[in-house]
């Protein structure tokens, strides 16, 4: 795929990978993007509706309504995953159902359910973050880096910590 990889290939291999690339069925990028936009948009719209409902009737404020909204969406995604529906939605929606927080919940729930056969501790506990792990690891690392940069910038500007 990358240039570094093709350099290691022999001329015959390069010829063949070029042929294979030319015969590869084109991914319908426009259609996939449209689907991702619509389905992702709808999930966010649902989230907004839940948030507004919580503010209007649940006694939450604009600031505190975020957490319960996310929790409700996650619960919904886990139920759909358990019912065996979320993977079907995923094939249609692509990133549209993977990027929202529901996709994060799906990655946890699907791994947990799948590895139940290897036991509760090693299977469910050990494998739950099989897919979501990198998101947390690098999200945390990025947040740490941003925090350190802020710390340095503030020290340099001589302002309060």
């Amino acid at each position: 795929m990358s240039n570094k990889k093709t350099k290691n290939l022999t001329p015959i291999q390069q010829q063949y990978t070029a042929l294979a690339a030319s015969r590869e069925p084109k991914r319908s990028v426009v259609k996939n993007c449209l689907r991702a936009f619509v389905s992702g948009g709808l999930i966010c719209l649902l989230g907004e509706a839940i948030r507004q409902a919580l503010i209007a009737w649940g006694g939450f404020t604009a600031k505190t309504a975020g957490d319960p909204t996310v929790a409700i969406l996650i619960a919904l995604a886990v139920v759909l995953t358990a019912a065996g529906v979320y993977d079907k939605i995923g094939q249609w929606a692509g990133a549209g159902s993977a990027v929202p927080v529901t996709g994060f919940a799906n990655s946890l729930a699907s791994a947990a359910i799948e590895h139940r056969s290897e036991g509760i501790v090693l299977g469910v506990g050990g494998q739950m973050f099989r897919i979501a792990g990198p998101v947390i690891v690098f999200g945390t690392a990025a947040a740490f880096a941003v925090g350190i940069i802020h710390l340095i910038v503030r020290a340099l500007l001589g302002g309060a910590p």
Binding site: G84, Y86, D87, G103, S107, A111, I113
Partner: peptide, 13 residues
Amino acid sequence: RYPTEYGAQKPPT
């Protein structure tokens, strides 16, 4: 690949 219930999109290949 992935757990069976994971919603990954498969390419046409």
